[in-house]
């Protein structure tokens, strides 16, 4: 009986985390389209509900009632598995995100590694979808995307090492608490910029949306998908974007810490600050989508391997030497 109580308690906590994440994914899609439209002097979705807020719900309803077409020459099991994998991976990563010192589902020692591992598994949803479709464009898109995501993961990993050098722990809450005096965005500003750009590439956002470059590849790996399976790919993609924003907020913008440690600001719960920081980063993501043209593929690879990787490696050496020389290395 006691055991069941623990299980129910955990299930309740998980639902309390996942339902808001899913709702905010739907809202963020609307926000993305809206910001995109405003930059281009359009209105964007503004018909369904107030300010068009319910547009995503209407879209979801439409997707649910559409027929799911499974191509006859596809590898059916993997074809169906691909969107499920994408969606699941995008959601399980939220387990370790701390919303305040105590509000975290799984406060594990290697939280940042878990986040990194889950985001590096994200490539499988795309490869599986592209391969199982058994068609040229999805396969080309999947190969492009796999190469792109593997390349940019490397630079994200090196950037994380930079932050970890200053923290001395892999726990996400420790990373946040280490920023009590100064957010890492100030001493590590170049790393923040590179993290932001790498996050764009890692989540296949414009200007790095080559896996689904519609001018060349129809829709990349999602070409053969329809109905609910397409919607799951879509939800997973946006959940991943939100996750990357949360990762950026925790690593560089002080997570759930309030910007100023003064009376009126400290009353606001940490979760609100984290959400505001995630929204700020997402706003930047959406702006970049609207104002930057798409990269060419060889330039993308050049940027990842020849610019970001050496630069962030040099920064690791610089940070480590600085901390060592001034005896600032965190002790365990």
């Amino acid at each position: 009986m006691e055991y069941l109580n623990i299980v129910f308690d955990e299930v309740y906590k998980i639902l309390f985390l996942l339902v808001p994440v899913l709702v905010s994914v739907a809202m963020i899609v609307w926000l993305d389209r809206r910001i995109w439209a405003f930059v281009q002097k359009r209105q964007g979705p503004n018909v369904v509900g107030p300010f068009g807020l319910l547009q995503s719900l209407a879209d979801a309803l439409k997707y649910i009632f559409k027929e799911m077409i499974i191509p006859s020459s596809s590898n059916k099991v993997i074809f169906i598995l691909a969107p499920i994998v994408t969606m699941t991976l995008a959601l399980i990563a939220w387990a370790v995100i701390p919303f305040s010192a105590t509000q975290v589902l799984a406060d594990i020692n290697v939280g940042i590694l878990y986040l990194f591992a889950v985001s590096s598994l994200g490539v499988y949803g795309i490869i599986m979808g592209g391969w199982a479709s058994n068609s040229k464009y999805p396969f080309l898109g999947a190969i492009r995307s796999a190469a792109q995501m593997v390349s940019y993961e490397v630079s994200i990993g090196v950037i994380i090492i930079n932050v970890l050098l200053c923290v001395g722990s892999l726990n996400l809450n420790d990373i946040v608490i280490a920023q009590q005096n100064v957010w890492f965005v100030i001493p590590l500003f170049p790393m923040f910029v590179i993290f932001f750009i790498s996050a764009l590439a890692e989540t296949n956002r414009p200007p790095f949306d080559l896996p689904e470059a519609e001018a060349e590849l129809v829709a990349g790996y999602q070409t053969e998908y329809s109905g609910m399976m397409y919607a799951m790919f879509w939800l997973g993609e946006y959940a991943n974007i939100l996750l990357m924003c949360a990762m950026g907020a925790i690593l560089f913008l002080g997570g759930w810490l309030s910007p100023i440690e003064l009376y009126p600001f400290t009353l606001v719960p940490g979760a609100i600050w984290l959400i505001l920081k995630i929204l700020l980063l997402f706003f930047l993501f959406a702006l970049v989508k609207a104002i930057v043209p798409r990269y060419r593929y060889d330039q993308l690879m050049r940027l990842g391997w020849k610019v970001f990787l050496p630069f962030s490696l040099i920064w690791v050496v610089l940070t480590a030497s600085y901390l060592f020389y001034f005896n600032l290395l965190p002790s365990s």
Binding site: N109, L113, Y114, F116, A117, S120, L121, V150, E153
Partner: peptide, 18 residues
């Protein structure tokens, strides 16, 4: 061995198996 497990995921599953 949480560190080993995570590194296994990152290196083998995230890079080598790809």
């Amino acid at each position: 061995a949480e560190f080993l497990g995570m590194i296994m995921l990152i290196v083998y599953v995230g890079a080598v198996a790809v």
